[in-house]
């Protein structure tokens, strides 16, 4: 649902990254007013790639869909807001020929606020810029994602085998990996 039918690249390209924290702050205030969604309800249309999610149902407040070249800018903005990077997740959408990279941010300074940033790259050429220069913690997460999934984080200082042995030549979390 969230991943299958996103906004088209042209739509999300129009999105100004600066809007993310403002709308995030706004929704923080009125999040309790939100009524729970119906079970069958489809994903709401994204405004500039941004979607308010039902926290009780999903576990995060804001879902942002960006182009791969926008993730560093998004990380800088969220860093400026004092948010923390929790994890980086790669998802292999093999039927669509894409990898999805999901960044989980949370605000630890007060009332918890979770923002999810996601970007998709072509499965044949999985290049996405690294955010490890903004968040030091992203270094290990990105390295692990490369190790297990083979997503190339351009500019990463040490893209080497991490959890797998040094001589491994496979990426086990890819869906076409066969043991």
């Amino acid at each position: 649902m969230l991943a299958a039918e996103g906004v088209s690249p042209e739509e999300s390209a129009k999105k100004k990254p600066e809007q993310a924290p403002q709308e995030a702050a706004a929704s923080e205030k009125d999040q309790d007013k939100k009524a729970p969604k119906k079970k069958e309800e489809e994903e709401k249309p994204r405004v500039n790639g941004l979607l308010e999610t039902d926290y009780a149902k999903r576990g995060f407040h804001i879902d942002v869909k960006l182009n791969p070249d926008q993730v560093v800018k998004a990380a800088e903005i969220l860093d400026g807001e004092g948010m923390t990077l929790d994890m980086v997740t790669g998802v292999d959408w093999i039927n669509e020929g894409q990898f999805e990279i999901i960044y989980d941010y949370s605000y630890t300074g007060g009332v918890l606020f979770r923002t999810v940033v996601r970007a998709r790259v072509d499965r044949a050429k999985p290049d996405i810029p690294t955010i490890s220069k903004v968040f030091g913690g992203a270094n290990w997460h990105e390295r692990e994602t490369w190790d297990l999934m083979g997503i190339n984080f351009v500019g990463h200082p040490q893209l080497e085998r991490f959890l797998l042995p040094e001589d491994a030549d496979f990426h086990p979390l890819r869906k076409d990996f066969k043991t």
């Binding site: 649902m1 969230l2 991943a3 299958a4 079970k39 999903r58 576990g59 995060f60 879902d63 929790d86 994890m87 997740t89 998802v91 999901i102 989980d104 979770r114 999810v116």
Partner: peptide, 22 residues
């Protein structure tokens, strides 16, 4: 479970443990 992403976090003895499932 219906399609989509889910996230849950707890405070384990060593800190924040969270799971995300697609």
């Amino acid at each position: 479970p219906p399609k989509g992403d889910y996230h849950f976090a707890v405070e384990a003895a060593r800190g924040l443990f969270s799971m995300r499932t697609v």
